[in-house]
């Protein structure tokens, strides 16, 4: 119980803040709908109300305040509305139904897993190259950094369109964008990890006349493991973002990104928030899974005490 008290305190604070924020965010539209809700809007006239501050308007229309938490298309949906939408979208339909959020979450997760695998593989290979080859050491890192400075939102549609024109659609284009974002932290972490053995440990293997391959597998790779897992967690989160961004231009397709886009087309803010939370849950699960594998691996290596 002791462990949960701080967690629950923070959670309660966030919820309280969220509910409070709904008042200024939604009060204008709620007062505009005064007739529907059955009270008189103060002051008369939309123009006059639009020019007023949110808190002032709320003070003048106290009977409007309860309705800010139950608007159909609020600017900021209340937590219970998001939770209700999320619950409904998960439980009301079969997981294979296109209206089910589980269906979309799986579409995103599968592309993310593929992209993460590609990105991690690529990242590890690049790191091995950088550590063992001087030319790669001098040349790859600037390109890797440059690749991450390009806004992914700008190139994702191009990648999708170009790949679609050569007949590649579905999972792979999304996975490639996901890989594009996730390889970078793996490269950085792995290079650092593979270089973490100090001069003495390398000298020791030299006195055994060990080959580069033996040095790699017996020293560099195990020494890099803690670094690799730290990078994998960052890469996992990045790969999910990559997939969602890759789903945005696919227009009415599958995935959390498509769902976000549809929500914003139709002003369905509650649906957007529910999709966002689904993305967060998937990401948390994914990162948690990596953390579990990390714990097991490092424990078996005797590195976790």
């Amino acid at each position: 119980m002791r462990r949960f008290v701080p967690v629950l305190t923070v959670l309660a604070a966030i919820l309280a803040l969220w509910y409070a924020a709904c008042v200024p965010m939604n009060i204008h539209s709620t007062v505009n709908l005064a007739r529907v809700h059955g009270f008189e809007a103060m002051p008369e006239g939309r123009r006059a109300r639009a020019e007023m501050g949110a808190l002032q308007l709320a003070a003048m229309n106290p009977e409007a305040v309860p309705f800010v938490w139950s608007e159909e298309k609020p600017r900021l949906p209340a937590p219970h509305q998001v939770a209700g939408e999320l619950w409904g979208a998960v439980t009301d339909f079969a997981p294979t139904d296109k209206r089910s959020l589980v269906f979309h979450a799986w579409a995103t997760l599968s592309a993310t897993l593929l992209g993460f695998a590609i990105g991690t593989g690529l990242g590890v290979l690049l790191a091995v190259g950088i550590v063992h080859n001087r030319a790669m050491d001098m040349s790859v890192m600037p390109w890797a950094i440059a690749s991450q400075t390009i806004p992914i939102l700008a190139i994702a549609p191009m990648v999708i369109v170009v790949l679609a024109s050569v007949g590649l659609t579905g999972l792979l284009p999304k996975a490639l964008i996901s890989a594009y974002l996730s390889f970078f932290p793996v490269v950085v972490g792995m290079v650092k990890g593979l270089r973490s053995p100090d001069a003495m440990q390398l000298d020791l293997l030299r006195t055994y006349n060990a080959s580069d391959t033996e040095t790699f597998f017996k020293l560099r790779l195990p020494a890099a493991m803690p670094y690799l897992f730290a990078s994998l967690k960052v890469g996992a989160a990045a790969s999910l973002v990559g997939t969602i961004v890759g789903e945005l231009p696919s227009g009415g397709g599958e995935g959390i990104g498509a769902r976000l886009l549809a929500g914003s087309y139709y002003g369905q803010t509650i649906q957007i928030w529910a999709a966002l939370f689904m993305a967060a849950i998937v990401a948390a699960g994914f990162v948690g899974l990596i953390g579990w594998v990390q714990g097991r691996t490092l424990h078996r290596m005797g590195l976790a005490r």
Partner: peptide
């Protein structure tokens, strides 16, 4: 060295923690 003629002990033990 290539004939593995010697063993070397460094200032620090330098054991692999894993």
């Amino acid at each position: 060295r290539k004939a593995r003629a010697y063993g070397y002990v460094f200032q620090a033990a330098g054991l692999y923690p894993w």
